[in-house]
Design a protein around this nucleic acid. Structure first.
Lengths: 166, 166
DNA sequence: CGGTGTCTTGAAAATGAATTTCAATTTCAA
DNA sequence: TTGAAATTGAAATTCATTTTCAAGACACCG
């Protein structure tokens, strides 16, 4: 079975949660916003989860801790987390925005199965180098890139072979 | 000034239009659909245009030739063109689906300016090789990939420097 | 400790692109 | 030519995202 995510840390440590919370609090102060229980709960839930979460999915997890937190707050907090570098948006091109943690993670990319929607992560320094190189060549100040591979995973291939032999 | 698109052909030839139309007609027949004047007009307009077109943009161009053609038909025809390989969707992550011709074009990628939305194309065979390699490693049957670089183009950098010197 | 001006919250409404519906029209195989 | 089947396009719908707004929470100040 393939790993869905390759973490540098097998699980999130208390230490990392504290550091991440610190980053968020500093960012909030910096832009004149307030620290709230909701924002902390959402950040903690986000950090504890290993997958690529849509706003809806994160909402469901957050509501297990505090059922009164609403969609809008999760939506807005994810934007805040992205602003201060704790989260980043990953677009799998299925019409739903997803976020993943960014804090203390190596640069990586995704390969997505177009049948079942599952994804694996892979590492490739070449892609980052290419960003630099192309940016230099065309005089762009590059900020980021997206790279996804789409295909059909082993499991889905087995399933469709079982349905339609030969 | 940078070229927005690097074409293998400077302009679309009569020959290519005929061939593309042939591909569409064969596809239509193949899936039991009908040839119509609208579909031909939309295909021709699409081929004559060099940019990355949203449905709305293509609609506007199409309506110069036949004002009675509606948004829905353009939308549906673009899907047909994508089905038979004449067009492909490019996602620039601004929430709007765009299409570009695929017929007789070399594989390429896009670098997009996040200030003004303009884009340049670049070629890199490494990216295609990477798709193959990663697919093999994780046992995916890969079908395609997306690779975009985001940044700020020279023009926009000059403009913002002019506004805020030093 | 309060008081007070902001910021936050979350339900509901709005937005906007993508998609579907449906009645009138057109295509095309026989 | 004919009629079954597909097409068309305006309008309606969908659905994720984003905004609005009134009530509540935070935090700076004295």
């Amino acid at each position: 079975m393939l790993q869905k995510r390759i973490d540098d840390q097998p699980t999130i440590s208390r230490q990392m949660v504290r550091e991440a919370q610190d980053i968020l609090h500093r960012h909030l102060k910096g832009v004149g916003l307030k620290q709230t229980a909701q924002r902390d709960t959402i950040l903690r839930t986000f950090l504890e989860t290993r997958d690529h979460l849509s706003t809806d999915e994160l909402l469901r997890l957050v509501q297990k801790k505090d059922a009164r937190i609403g969609y809008t707050t999760v939506y807005r907090t994810l934007k805040l987390l992205a602003e201060c570098g704790l989260a980043s948006e990953v677009a799998f091109h299925d019409g739903i925005a997803r976020y993943e943690h960014q804090y203390n993670r190596r640069s990586h990319h995704h390969m997505v199965c177009t049948e079942c929607g599952s994804s694996v992560e892979f590492f490739s320094q070449e892609v980052g180098q290419l960003e630099q190189e192309i940016g230099r060549r065309y005089h762009y100040l590059t900020t980021r890139h997206t790279f996804q591979i789409y295909g059909i995973c082993e499991d889905c291939r087995k399933k469709s072979n079982a349905l339609r032999p030969l």
